[in-house]
Design a protein around this nucleic acid. Sequence first.
RNA 1: GCCCGCGUGGUGGAAUGGUAGACACAGGGGACUUAAAAUCCCUCGGCCGCAGGGCCUUGCCGGUUCAAAUCCGGCCGCGGGCACCA
Length: 847
Amino acid sequence: MSQYDPAVTEPYWQAAWDEAGLFTARRDPARPKYYVLEMFPYPSGRIHMGHVRNYTMGDVVARHKAASGYSVLHPMGWDAFGMPAENAAIERGGHPKDWTYQNIADMRGQMKPLGLSIDWSREFATCDPEYYGQQQALFLDMLADGLVYRKNAVVNWDPVDMTVLANEQVIDGKGWRSGAAVERRELTQWFFRISAYSGELLDALDGLKDWPEKVRLMQANWIGRSRGLQFAFTLSGAPEGFDRLEVYTTRPDTLMGASFAAISPDHPLAKHLERHDPAVASFVAECRRVGTSAEALETAPKMGMDTGIRVLHPFDNGWELPVYIANFILMDYGTGAIFGCPAHDQRDFEFATKYSLPIPPVFVAAGSDEGPMTEAFVPMKSEPVRYVRGFAGAEVQTGAEAVDAAITFCEANGVGHGVTNYRLRDWGLSRQRYWGCPIPVVHCDDCGVVPERHENLPVRLPDDVTFDKPGNPLDRHSTWGRVPCPACGKPARRETDTMDTFVDSSWYFARFTAPHAVTPTDAADADYWMNVDQYIGGVEHAILHLLYSRFFARAMHKTGHLPGKAIEPFNALFTQGMVTHEIYKTTDANGRPVYHLPEDVTEGRLQDGTVVEVIPSAKMSKSKKNVVDPMSIIAAFGADTARWFVMSDSPPERDVEWTASGAEAAFKHLSRVWRMADEASRAEGPAMPDDAALARASARAITDVTAGIEGFAFNKAVAALYAFSNAIQKSDAGPDARRDALKIMAQIMAPMVPHLAEEVWAMLGGQGMVSAARWPVADAGLLVEGDVTLPIQINGKRRAEISVPKDMPKDEIEKLALANEDVVRFLAGQPVKKLIVVPGRIINVVV
RNA sequence: GCCCGCGUGGUGGAAUGGUAGACACAGGGGACUUAAAAUCCCUCGGCCGCAGGGCCUUGCCGGUUCAAAUCCGGCCGCGGGCACCA
């Protein structure tokens, strides 16, 4: 062969790796293990550049760890349940199952040419009955342990499609598909008791040192701990059975600023009134009409209705406050009831203004007096304020001090107790959808809700379903739902809801450790491989997927499916940036935008010469057509070029812009490396004086590339490899030294460009395959230069430099520096006030 | 509104207190070639100067330090997350 030809060499080496079984993960008690995992893909049918970047990062880590002596687990699978498969069936006919498995086959076919060091023997899809059957087993164990339960919940209900919609699927109060006005409906749904772990999930974030600070903060905010006081008002004029009203507040120090109490429309008291009072009923109905989406809540005006009921202030039984039903009170936070303090809460202020309620201030800014208020005064809790209606502690103190004092005072006086609350709510997992994991329970008229027996798992999805009508096909299946009650044997009905697809992805990492086990996990395998040492994926999963997985690790531990050490699923997390591309736009005759694929645009023009508008880089998306198909890059340049490009230039946590010129340049560089190896393999000649310098460059490269990979700075590893190849190219070293350097290059570039590395290694007579070779160690003796160049600053400005032996004593350096002719010229006889010598670094002369 | 991050040449970025701009893309010049491609060499932050060289420069203003892109304070701009959470 006379030139770099990845189309030939890449398939060759992939076959060689397969044949050698190089990537098959094996439990090896003699070696440390390393489990590296990239977030598994949804099988859309096509891989995109984001996949290439994500899996290449994981592959770099996996290959480097394998070369460094670790027993590596690097698996791949498919997050295969979900709505796109059903939507495809609805829109184009066919079956979700066929659509999904065909997509998996297509994507696997596109991923294999990337040459990833994946153990494909562990591959599974979450829609495999072998997988979701084990998930059902987990569900039953969690049910038995009280980690799953049923309750009524308010959801977005699409009356046309007859399904629950996620908040994201409600647009302007209408279903995204049907366009029907979405209703708030109360349904009985299954929930995971994730809130039982609120405190622990929050506290344990501190231990996740190798997670991005940003993700930990987002999770902490999401869990949302607050400390406050819960106490009961005595009710007056309330219906029979309602004599006390529990409320929760984080600002008990503002109790003397109370001007009303308010309850949620879903509060038991409101529901009671709703049944007996038509006015209340119509008001509550009005509140319900507004959706639960964030957008709907944001735009909804504050509404309230005086119930006529009164509460007595806990510190003054003669002080009565009106009780309102208010639309902005959430039933599932705190107690679903509050006391309103309009002076120090903006919502309460707006409410009080609207309904002409008093606004008594509790504190004022330190050093100022009471005055008329145009908005609520809400200072930072760390800011000292002067209390004019305080009841515990000093007159001037911070909000935080006042809250603590108020809780202590209230507890001592029998008014409630301190309580810690969390924003995190239980995870509703029921979906009225076909293409998901069936919830393995049966509804019996006599026995109620009965768990399916373990021996009847998996509860398989039926294949004979139709999608010609809206709603869940499982509901209208003629036979699937009819089963005997697992408890009494009488005819009963299967649960037809399926699980949220987030359940599938909450434990797949554990299943990879023993993908064929007849229980959810295998104790020995899980014990050896867990936890995932390095997890890599998009930051868009910072909260839901990563929090659910952390919950599942705990739930699986509690139910005996994970060993003790695996309380956290992912020891280290890396969130990678996107691959972006410019957008090319023209406008049609009607003024509508028309987008063009990058391959149709050359130097800013279409084929017919039309100039396109170039919009700066954005995430690759089909609708903007700014996509580059990895398969076309592999066809044109090979997988190594695609891998090299996505590792280059941008730090991995940031976005990287794909450019045609960059891809071409990557290919040119790899070709140059190939040529250097080709020439070196045939060169003859004696050793040369430059051999030692090249050996030093090799040591430098090993150090820098290793540091880049281990520090997740692949762009710096790539830069070090560029510098190394420049050094080899420019070197006047002899052929043996060049071959040695190039073999080291093959070893340290192998994680990024494994096929080319094998090729170079083979050309230069390397032993075996470079993918099986040990990671090279830099010779420490070569790293230290004999002489160092020290810049000399005068008053902080660089004016000269001297070259001195590395270990020259400080005082001699000082003498040399002051004797330097440039220094003498700049000093012009001025006396030196101070002389700073930082060994090996710099000299600064202060005058 | 609350929380967080970022700001360095034409571009992506490097340097986390010690020579700012490594490495690369784009640009400019040259060699080879009948020509092109490929390849190789030089140049490439701004201003002044024939040159040796000098001055300026990390969003803006100030501070700490012998020394600041880096640490501290304030401002401006961009991006992300959460959001009726009592």
